[in-house]
Simulated assay, not measured.
Amino acid sequence: MAVYTEVPFGEAAALAEKLGLGTLTELRGIQGGIENTNYFITCVTDGVAQEHVLTVFERLGFDQLPFYLRLMQHLARKGIPVPGPVADGSGEILHTVQGKPAAVVEKLRGRSELSPTAGHCQAVGDMLARMHLAGRDFGLQQPNLRGLNWWNDTVPVVLPHLAASQRDLLTAELAYQNHVAALPAYTALPRGPIHADLFRDNVMFEDGRLSGFFDFYFAGCDTFLFDLAVCLNDWCIVHAEGDDDGQHDETRAQAMLAAYQAVRPLTSAERQLLPAMLRAGALRFWLSRLWDWYLPRDAAMLKPHDPGHFERVLRARLARLPDLSVPLLDAAPVTA
């Protein structure tokens, strides 16, 4: 979470006081991520220090942000461990810092597991399914802003920067995903609010137990299967230097899928299109990383992610076709 907007200490202190958080004692920029400005803020009340996260939104506007913040509030009330937004005395959870929209949320306890075991993947699959069920009655609607429409708009922008083999792969996969989106089976996929970016660094564990999901600022209404595929593409693959990077990990994938389906079994349409959504998830993050890599914004502490990783994930998914769906689903029950 790069720092694009330098927040003066005094302004942060005034916001903390307005929110009843106490006296601000520390304001520390957060390194990692590339979309918004994020700070850890430490406040003291009656001698007790507490940490929260201050986010200044760089691309999302005041009209879009109620969806994200109210979704987090809704999920927290349903028992899903997410950081609740902090309201001021009038109940407002969307604030202004340096003339930009901002929010302060609770800081989750624990740490991310960047080398997850099958047990970690099982916990994520279980909670992801519970989150999908909890969000079905959420009243606000907003599309996945990094979905198919964004892919169609962005591919032409990055193509000039790529080698011929990359251009061929990117354009072919985009054409395939447009084809999939027109299928009746795709139309039948269950939908609702999804996280859409639930990578390993957006989940916390404490004492071996999942303690929370966070960073919902790519969330939107889309297929639950796409959300699951995004998780499988980060949690259940090999992360390594060299040729193995991006390869499927069967044990972790089975653990995540079995746990997910124990809570919300996949439909026949979801089973049919899981391979396509795994490809879609790889395409989405390859494309966004290409965009950030070749068209970066100025920011302190900005470290764009290597786009080559998700190119390898996509190629690995393509190499497993047409038998991808069978080993991924053998161990889990499926409903019609």
Results as ranks from 00 to 15, higher is better:
Met1Lys: 15
Thr5Pro: 07
Glu6Val: 15
Phe9Tyr: 14
Phe9Met: 09
Phe9Trp: 12
Glu11Asn: 08
Ala13Ser: 15
Ala14Asp: 07
Ala14Val: 09
Leu19Gly: 09
Thr25Asp: 05
Glu26Trp: 11
Ile34Thr: 13
Glu35Ser: 11
Asn36Gln: 03
Tyr39Arg: 08
Tyr39Leu: 04
Tyr39Asn: 05
Phe40Gln: 11
Ile41Ser: 00
Gly47Asp: 03
Glu51Gln: 15
His52Tyr: 14
His52Glu: 00
His52Gly: 01
Phe57Asn: 02
Leu60Phe: 04
Gln64Ala: 14
Leu65Gln: 08
Arg70His: 13
Leu71Lys: 14
Lys78Tyr: 08
Val82His: 00
Ala87Val: 07
Ala87Arg: 14
Glu92Tyr: 06
Ile93Leu: 08
Leu94Tyr: 10
Leu94Trp: 12
Pro101Cys: 01
Ala102Thr: 13
Ala103Thr: 07
Glu106Asp: 06
Leu108Glu: 01
Gly110His: 06
Gly119Lys: 11
His120Leu: 06
Cys121Ile: 04
Gln122Arg: 15
Met127Arg: 13
Ala129Ser: 01
Gly135Arg: 14
Arg136Gly: 05
Gln142Ile: 06
Pro143Ile: 00
Pro143Trp: 01
Asn144Ser: 08
Leu145Gln: 12
Trp150Asn: 00
Trp150Ile: 00
Asn152Asp: 03
Asn152Leu: 05
Val155Glu: 03
Val157Arg: 15
Pro160Thr: 03
Ala164Gln: 08
Leu174Asp: 01
Leu174Asn: 02
Asn178Tyr: 04
Asn178Met: 07
His179Leu: 07
Leu183Met: 12
Ala185Ser: 05
Tyr186Ala: 09
Tyr186Thr: 05
Leu198Val: 03
Leu198Cys: 03
Asp201Met: 00
Met204Pro: 02
Asp207Arg: 15
Asp207Glu: 14
Arg209Asp: 05
Leu210Phe: 10
Leu210Ser: 12
Phe216Glu: 04
Ala219Met: 05
Asp222Lys: 15
Asp227Ile: 09
Leu228Ile: 07
Leu228Val: 14
Val230Asp: 05
Ile237Cys: 00
His239Ile: 07
Asp244Ile: 04
Gly246Asp: 01
Gly246Thr: 04
His248Phe: 12
Asp249Leu: 08
Arg252Ile: 07
Arg252Asn: 09
Ala253His: 10
Met256Thr: 06
Ala259Lys: 10
Ala262His: 13
Val263Gln: 14
Leu266Pro: 05
Thr267Val: 03
Leu274Lys: 14
Ala276Val: 05
Leu278Val: 11
Ala280Cys: 06
Ala280Ile: 02
Gly281Pro: 02
Phe285Ser: 10
Leu290Met: 12
Arg297Pro: 02
Pro307Lys: 00
Pro307Tyr: 00
Leu314Trp: 01
Pro322Val: 11
Pro322Gly: 09
Ser325Gln: 13
Val326Met: 09
Val326Pro: 04
Pro327Val: 05
Pro327Trp: 10
Leu329Asp: 00
Val334Ser: 10
